[in-house]
Simulated assay, not measured.
Amino acid sequence: MGKVRASAFSVSLDGFGAGPNQDLEHPFGVPGIEVTNWLLKTRMFHEMIGQEGGAVDTDDRFARKSMEGVGAWIMGRNMFGPIRGQWPDHSWKGWWGDNPPYHVPVFVLTHHARPSIEMEGGTVFHFVTDGITAALQRATAIAGGKDVRIGGGVSVVRQYLQAGLLDELHLAVSPVLLGRGENLFSGLDLPALGFACAESVAGPNATHVTVRRRSAMA
């Protein structure tokens, strides 16, 4: 049986996973892109976007590990694209172009129905309008015993934490302060929700902290 996990989820030192004012030019808000700088410097990311270079180090190891053993993804609509409200048309197919990096079914949480989109490389976007539990049930069924990765953004990870549906959370804590935006930890009591820190590893551009449900650590 696979885990339900959020992996390589970037946050600032003060707990923000995105800055304010997200739009097409600033998908992580302003200046939220700073929390992902650790990932942008890795060899894995360079390979993902078809470029040479990138560092092979601790950050790269955690980035690669985050993609292993995943049978399905769940993400929020903001992570799929910048469009809000009703879909004006079906032309937008995600941030990553014709061949997204997921290569498995992806369930997008939204309030507005839309037909599934089959992309190159095995990625199929399915749009789920009946909530996080229904999305997880569908993702688990199709994952075939592999992990279900909760891809974000902040609101989605918070919802799965609060509902007790997340087994593991790997945070890449970047040495930056945002001050405002979407805070992952605000109002959450992780110990009361059954979580404890299982691992902390320093990388060159982020500290990798893994938090697991205590029952899974026994």
Rank of each mutant, 00 (worst) to 15 (best):
G97K: 01
D59S: 11
A113R: 11
S116Q: 12
W96Y: 15
T129C: 08
G54E: 04
G194D: 12
V154Q: 06
E118I: 08
H46K: 11
S12Q: 01
K3H: 06
E47R: 11
L109S: 03
A198Q: 13
E52D: 12
E118K: 14
E168L: 11
L184H: 13
G53V: 03
A206M: 06
R114Q: 07
Y102G: 06
P20W: 00
M79D: 10
G85A: 12
H126M: 04
M67S: 15
V148I: 08
R84H: 12
H126I: 03
A139P: 02
M48L: 09
G81Q: 07
K3A: 07
V56G: 07
I117Q: 13
C197H: 14
P31E: 03
A113K: 13
L166Q: 14
G50M: 01
S155D: 11
R138I: 02
T210P: 11
T133G: 08
V30I: 03
E68N: 14
D167V: 12
R84V: 13
F16E: 00
K65C: 07
A18Q: 00
D89Y: 12
A202K: 15
R214S: 14
R212D: 06
K93D: 07
Q162Y: 08
A216M: 13
P191G: 15
S174K: 13
F45R: 03
S7N: 02
H90F: 14
V124A: 05
G145S: 12
H126N: 13
R77P: 06
G50N: 05
M67V: 11
W96M: 10
L109I: 02
H208Y: 15
I74K: 14
E199V: 14
K3I: 00
V148F: 06
H111G: 14
G53F: 04
L165R: 11
E120P: 06
L169W: 07
E182D: 15
T36G: 03
W95L: 06
L40K: 10
H46I: 01
A139T: 03
D57S: 07
T58Q: 07
I142S: 06
G151K: 01
G50S: 08
A198S: 15
Q22A: 05
R158Y: 02
W38K: 01
V106R: 11
A72M: 03
G81S: 10
L165A: 10
N99E: 14
G151D: 08
P191L: 11
R43P: 00
V156Y: 06
T210F: 12
W95G: 05
G203K: 04
P100M: 04
A113D: 13
L40E: 02
S91C: 05
L178F: 08
L109P: 03
